[in-house]
Design a protein around this nucleic acid. Sequence first.
DNA 1: ATGATGCGCGCG
DNA 2: AAAGCGCGCGCATCAT
Length: 573
Amino acid sequence: MYLLLAAHADGAALQELTADGTPHPATPVPRIVSSAELTGVVRGLEQRRPRWIWHRTQNWYPALLAAGVELERCYDLTLCGAILAHSEFTAHTAYAQNAEKLTQDEELQPPRALQPPPPPADQGALFDDPGLRKTPRHSPEDLRAEYAAQQEALSQAEGPGAERHGGNRRQRLQLLLAAESAGAMIAAEMQHTGVPWREELHEQILAGYLGPRPAAGHRPAKLEALTAELRQLLDSPSLNPDSPQELMRALHRNGIEVKTTRQWELKESSHPAIEPLLAFKKLSRLHAANGWVWLDAWVKNGRFQPEYVVGGVVSGRWASRGGGALQIPRQIRGAVHADPGHKLIVADASQLEPRVLVALAQDARMAEAARDKDLYAGIAAQGFGGDRAKAKVALLGAIYGATTGESGRLMPQLTRTYPRAVGFVEHAAREGEAGRTVTSRLGRSSPPPSDRWLQSQQSTSAEEQRRADSIARSRGRFTRNFVVQGSAADWAACWLAELRRRLRALRADGTPAGELVFFLHDEVMVHCPEAAVTACVRAIEEAANAAKELLFGKIPVEFPVSVAVVDSYDHAK
DNA sequence: ATGATGCGCGCG
DNA sequence: AAAGCGCGCGCATCAT
């Protein structure tokens, strides 16, 4: 069952559609539901397990969750439209070509019917959101047509050029759209739930590193002491060590000839001021980024509730807004603590990107190494005389496009042992250098070349040509990484969606189950009652294997998940 | 005063 | 030990 939910002046419009987006005979005209009755109506209809089709998950779902309504599945027109408008799998369709034309001619973002975002405004207290703009909204008919157009494009994905991607393009893209929409729901659910965060533990950690909480706008004691020490050691009585300019001058006056004030460059010097300076930088960062101010701003009632931005990174990774949710430093992870009677299950996919590369390239030799729980150890044994560190640097260098340093020097050695895997990323790099698009396993494509790249193609002089080559190589490094990072994001999206499905199934059975509370590229955190730990761990592992098979079928490559059951986040890993 | 940009550093 | 991919954020600094 497909149910369109659209904003309407009198509340919301509901319409049942068929799979291809035509109105269901039973509902030729949308049903208008007042804002007051909307929650109840949605809750009732959910019994029939529909796929809710809406403009943006973020416009509808948070308010429904706040009202206690959880839904099973949706179709996010904005996220799916963005994928379809750019995917190589649908590049030949009218949908993508119209979207492309609109972006170029009118500076509008695709998909065409969805710009600008319509607020589900005027829907009573439930949907009050002063942050939403009052802009022209889209009629149910606009959204229905948009959905039909997207389904049409999807159905054509098996078109010209399909063999280049090994077929199955429609199924893969369909899977990606489902996973992306599920991701949008998970993001809203995780924001609603929040990460369990013990404020008093956070404060203990801060006090340990920085001293007692200072008055607003003042440096904590430890930073004051280090500042005084640095002023003396560098003979600069008024130095502000937070200012790179002042710091640079002071360092130079003392014969410390650095070109930047970055940590790794400072570490080269043996001057007595370096050690306290590095300590200052470390603590200053903690204070500024995750200190008392952060705690006051972002943690409420024992929960950290960041906003996740699904589709926020072109590769398909999520971004986040507010509180630096994807950069929680190790120093303060001790504050992430399970509730009484609960545990945190922290699981991460071990060495995800190299394993994805093995599967993408179908490199049989590297697949042997990937049978090892520790892929880098396997690679080291095969081609690097057992030197794990070398194997790791070489492989990551291949994925990132390293040319210099140890990583660059190891490339020939890696290429000899694994010509297929290295050839795969080299090919992606050459495509990017030539201005072409590359695509993830499930069909998310890289953006077209930047204006900078296009302009550089006009170069005439030798100087301009060097510049053009540099810009091309930079794009090559991006597309080289895109195929791996993007496919890893495909895998992670499927992992997450499969895990959510299993956790919901456990709950529906009446089995105690945990809740997803955090997701970070290749890592998930489930907060669960102690009695549910075993079932949740199994769900996480089964979901990982399911994700592998959804992407690649039954292949002889493992995607092992390392699982830690802990009271606090700092005890994971 | 306010907004944009660059640096540096946190995470994967 | 290192400089190659993707982000967000706070501060200092520069431009308006």
